[in-house]
Computed example of a mutant assay.
Amino acid sequence: MRRVLILRPEPAAGRTAAKAAALGLDARVHPLFAPQPIDWAPPVPEDFDALLLTSANGVTFAGPALLHYRGLPTYAVGANTAQALTEAGFPTVIAGDSDGSAIAARIAGDGHGRVLHLAGTTVAPMEIGPLELTRIAVYGMTALPPDPALIADAVPGSILLVHSPRAAVRLAEQIGREGRKSLHIVAISAATLAACGPGWASGQAPALPRDDEMLALALRLCE
Rank of each mutant, 00 (worst) to 15 (best):
M1S: 13
R3S: 13
R3W: 08
E10C: 00
E10N: 13
A13S: 14
A13M: 02
A17T: 00
A18V: 00
A18K: 07
K19S: 12
L23M: 15
L25G: 01
D26S: 14
A27H: 06
H30N: 00
H30D: 03
P31I: 04
F33H: 13
Q36M: 11
P37A: 11
P42K: 08
P42Y: 03
V44S: 15
V44P: 10
P45V: 12
E46P: 00
L52V: 04
G58L: 01
P64N: 02
A65G: 07
A65D: 15
L66D: 02
L66W: 06
L67M: 13
H68Y: 06
R70F: 05
Y75F: 15
A76H: 03
V77D: 09
A79L: 10
N80R: 13
A82G: 15
A84L: 11
A84H: 06
A84Q: 06
L85S: 06
G89F: 11
T92K: 12
V93Y: 10
V93I: 11
D97L: 07
D97K: 13
D99Q: 01
I107G: 05
I107H: 05
D110H: 11
G111H: 08
R114N: 12
A119Y: 00
T121V: 09
T122R: 15
A124Y: 05
M126L: 13
E127Q: 15
G129K: 04
G129C: 03
R135T: 14
I136H: 09
A137H: 07
Y139N: 12
Y139T: 09
A143P: 14
A143G: 11
L144M: 10
L144K: 07
L144Q: 09
P145F: 06
P145T: 09
P146C: 06
D153R: 12
D153V: 11
V155P: 01
V155T: 15
L161M: 12
V162Y: 09
S164W: 10
V169T: 14
E173V: 04
G176F: 06
R177H: 12
L183Q: 04
H184M: 03
I185D: 03
I185P: 00
I185Y: 05
A187R: 01
A187P: 01
I188K: 04
S189I: 01
A195W: 08
G199L: 10
W200M: 08
W200Y: 10
G203R: 05
Q204T: 08
L208P: 01
P209C: 04
D211G: 01
E213Q: 12
A216K: 15
A216D: 14
L217N: 02
A218S: 06
R220P: 00
L221I: 03
C222A: 14
